[in-house]
Amino acid sequence: MLRPSSTPQAAVENLGDKIRLQAWGNAYASLDNKAQFTESDFEHDLTGYHLSLRTYATLESFEVRPLHASNNEAEVQLRIHWSSVVGPFTDTRNLRVVRNGDRWNVDWPLVKRSVVPPQVIAVNYLRWDVIYRGSGDDWGVQDVEAPHVRIVDMHPVQRAEGVVVLGELLNEDVVPAYVSVRATLQSKNGSPIASEGSFDRISHILLPKQVTPFLINFPDANLSDVGSIRMEPMSSLVSASADPVIEIENQQLNPAPGASVTGQLVNQSGQVVNIAHVLETLYDKTGQVVWVADQYTDRALLPQTPVPFDIHIPEDLARKVSSERTIASTYSVGGFQ
């Protein structure tokens, strides 16, 4: 139910409701600065100019927070909470709201479409294709060896929500691997307590000699009940490409309060990366993994165009963190990764 835009806050709330309803025309028409861009620009600012997480995200909720106001102008923060297949993400915009008679209208701060200069980027990185063995019981017939992978670090930690198993996995082979890790907590008498697999806090495709962190959650488990942990790294051959290469620039470890790792992803290839998954491995002074955090970028990565990331670190762990390592796995429509 839309309210009259008789206050700056009401104007922003109305805009938020129209965005939720995907009533792009109405939302655009309500803007004060609509002459500066088209309705399509406005829509794509919110849903992505290229296929990305935003394209399929739905607006879950929004918050409106007045920052300051005068008789004719106000600044209001709009925090839009989107929900996507890989979890929620938040879009924060500080909006200028201007008075027009008895109504207030929002001045939308459009994030303009990045334009990559026309150019040719030569890409000649490797690509691996796999021909698998056919079905049937041809015992003794040789198959292609699964990639050799190795857990190079692993330890459990007790958290309020349960036991977490952290570690790193190395593809020590010369071929790409699709990897996952399964951990089974065993009691002191050797009986299994629970078994879980790494799911989203791991990079599932590893190129030769690439390392991924992993984090496996055991909700409600208690470390004092655990006698041992059985780790099962799994790998299979997978077709893959060494392109695109993603550079991670200007990484910064920001201390508590609000501890985070920030930086920028730069797509060094010529193709658009639709979704990037940034995995942050956090180490203590001894080099042991203390946490694995992650974030998906909600916007596509255009060639040579930096896209920022900001990954939250749990407050209680922030002071233990001495160094970090960032990797990014990517997904491109029609691509391999």
Binding site: N124, L207, V245, E247, Q252, G263, T326
Partner: peptide
């Protein structure tokens, strides 16, 4: 100065 940049590059 407290910042870090990382790139994973394949051999070519």
């Amino acid at each position: 100065g407290g910042d870090q940049s990382t790139v994973d590059v394949p051999l070519k």
